[in-house]
Design a protein around this nucleic acid. Sequence first.
DNA 1: TATTGTTATACTCTATAACTATA
DNA 2: TATAGTTATAGAGTATAACAATA
Lengths: 160, 160
Amino acid sequence: MHPSAKSNRPSRKPTKTTSPAVETWVQMVRVYQRIMRRLDHALDGHGLSMSQFEVLAHLHFDGSLTQNELAQRLLVTKGNVCGLIDRMEAAVLVERTADPADRRANRLLLTHRGATALADALPPHLALVKEMMGALKVGELRTLHDLLARLAGPADDGCR
Amino acid sequence: MHPSAKSNRPSRKPTKTTSPAVETWVQMVRVYQRIMRRLDHALDGHGLSMSQFEVLAHLHFDGSLTQNELAQRLLVTKGNVCGLIDRMEAAVLVERTADPADRRANRLLLTHRGATALADALPPHLALVKEMMGALKVGELRTLHDLLARLAGPADDGCR
DNA sequence: TATTGTTATACTCTATAACTATA
DNA sequence: TATAGTTATAGAGTATAACAATA
């Protein structure tokens, strides 16, 4: 049941839905959700949520960050980061240390356990990404990357 | 602080992170989140969450669905759908009706209020999608669509 | 027996806003 | 006065599992 489905339909405003832009966006949503779901499940065995994994990865690759810097990178509020770090500190994945330069700020550090958890979780995560993106050849990946880069590019929300 | 940041870094396993596959995925995550955030905010004024909007859209375009059918389309469990529909029924956006063919099932219907809410929210939603995807020409959109379609395509999770 | 939907539980993420301590 | 972080509150999404009614 799809095209002219139900008399149930109000049909006020025909709202032409089939446009290349919309179809492509719908396709992107589908693919994103499917991939993200698999990546999320791959973290199950490591006792990490996707957000926690992202925190660990940022601290690993960007070095120590304040909670505020982390909030900007994760695109969430500092209140959210506070709760997130609360949970991760309780799980001994990160620790808050005093920032010598600004006594208001916390510098976040990976604990040994956090670093180990990332070292365990990252390689299979990357392998899975490569597997799923591997349907495309390198040239196609580059094309995809460039097309994505031009979407909603400079026009940033200004939000948060 | 970026490249060789902290002595804090364990650096066990260099984990080569820069690959076309990974970079493209990271780009996709960024774009997806930015677009989704704007679409989400655009729904604020209509009193709908993104999930609720999706429910209304599915009922509109696919016709009446059972909760189970809806769960499959939204990729969530039937327990989740139950709670979601509870909230939407409380907001008089949808209603549960008896399925004549299967007395276990609920057929979900848009209420007048739900149909109106969708008719109000859908056009600006689509317009925003077209605006954000409009950075690409039609041919480029088609290319993007085709590349996306080949990602994680037939290899479905089997999950849920 | 299998399936539809419900209920209960628990955790995570998100948003907002008032609050503190520093700057 | 502005900023970094905290706290409180609320709502939403998710996962799991046990359960009732029906197939």
